[in-house]
Amino acid sequence: MAKHKAPEILATSVVAQSRLFTVEAMDLRFSNGEERTYERMKPSNRGGVMVVPVTAQGDLLLIREYCAGTERYELGFPKGLIDPGENPQQAGDRELKEEIGMGAHVWTPLKQIVLAPSYFSSTMTLFLAQDLYPERLVGDEPEELEVVRWPLQQAEELLTHLDFCEARSITALMLAVRVLAKEA
């Protein structure tokens, strides 16, 4: 496989901005002399976390929340941004407490993923959380989230559920199932 030298960044500029997002144009020169302009979300240097909580009874805990992108309620795992001063596990613990009212004593990192590396640099750290205990923190959600218990033994059926279609949640589930199978 050929090794490529990273292209030279000739210039960057902001082409669009909203309250949440900044779109940046990057003028690049590749090692073969070709020049192109790429657009990307300007890096925020703030990662995110997603947590697959599993109860002692062998249930996955999911949340059902409204998603503006699909304009419907979706099933997924607790997730959120890492606040300044937090590490990924601390952010995951906070998100669990805010979104499902549980903390966890046992944390297993699953993988750090990137949603769409051509357009985003933000990473999301996926965790498996076990040995859960009740503790609630106030979150920033506009409405109370519905917590859905799903038997881990029926993970295959969850993959075909119409409301469970977020790629990050599917990835987290598959990685968690693999780790849990090794523990069994």
Results as ranks from 00 to 15, higher is better:
89 Q>C: 13
47 G>C: 13
73 Y>S: 05
109 P>K: 00
137 L>Q: 12
140 D>S: 05
96 L>C: 09
143 E>Y: 11
98 E>M: 04
171 T>M: 09
12 T>R: 10
154 Q>D: 15
127 F>L: 05
56 A>L: 10
79 K>N: 15
161 H>E: 13
173 L>Y: 05
49 V>C: 08
78 P>Q: 03
50 M>L: 15
148 V>R: 08
150 W>N: 01
29 R>V: 12
110 L>S: 03
112 Q>R: 15
85 G>W: 01
6 A>D: 15
142 P>A: 10
122 S>W: 07
170 I>P: 01
24 E>D: 07
16 A>C: 06
162 L>F: 12
92 G>A: 15
81 L>Y: 02
28 L>N: 01
12 T>Y: 00
24 E>F: 04
27 D>L: 01
116 A>G: 13
46 R>Y: 08
183 E>M: 05
100 I>E: 10
46 R>F: 04
34 E>Q: 09
99 E>T: 06
13 S>D: 12
63 I>G: 07
148 V>Q: 00
5 K>C: 07
77 F>N: 07
42 K>S: 09
24 E>Q: 11
181 A>T: 10
80 G>H: 04
108 T>L: 03
76 G>R: 02
92 G>P: 06
16 A>D: 08
152 L>I: 08
102 M>Q: 13
56 A>V: 10
145 L>M: 12
130 Q>I: 02
163 D>F: 09
123 T>M: 12
98 E>P: 09
28 L>S: 07
93 D>I: 07
48 G>W: 09
141 E>M: 11
65 E>V: 11
115 L>M: 12
36 R>N: 02
60 L>M: 00
183 E>F: 07
11 A>H: 08
96 L>T: 09
89 Q>N: 02
29 R>Q: 10
99 E>C: 05
7 P>C: 05
66 Y>F: 15
125 T>A: 14
124 M>F: 15
101 G>I: 11
119 Y>D: 10
168 R>L: 06
16 A>T: 00
144 E>T: 12
160 T>V: 14
121 S>L: 14
122 S>L: 03
40 R>L: 10
116 A>P: 12
40 R>W: 08
105 H>T: 11
5 K>N: 13
50 M>Q: 13
27 D>F: 03
54 V>M: 03
13 S>T: 13
166 E>A: 04
173 L>V: 08
159 L>I: 05
67 C>Q: 15
11 A>M: 07
19 R>Q: 14
46 R>Q: 14
91 A>Y: 00
63 I>R: 01
72 R>C: 02
131 D>K: 03
83 D>W: 03
148 V>C: 07
20 L>F: 11
20 L>Q: 07
132 L>M: 03
20 L>P: 00
165 C>N: 08
146 E>D: 12
108 T>R: 00
182 K>M: 06
57 Q>R: 04
91 A>E: 02
50 M>F: 12
80 G>K: 02
138 V>F: 10
42 K>Q: 11
27 D>K: 00
51 V>E: 03
57 Q>H: 04
8 E>T: 15
59 D>M: 04
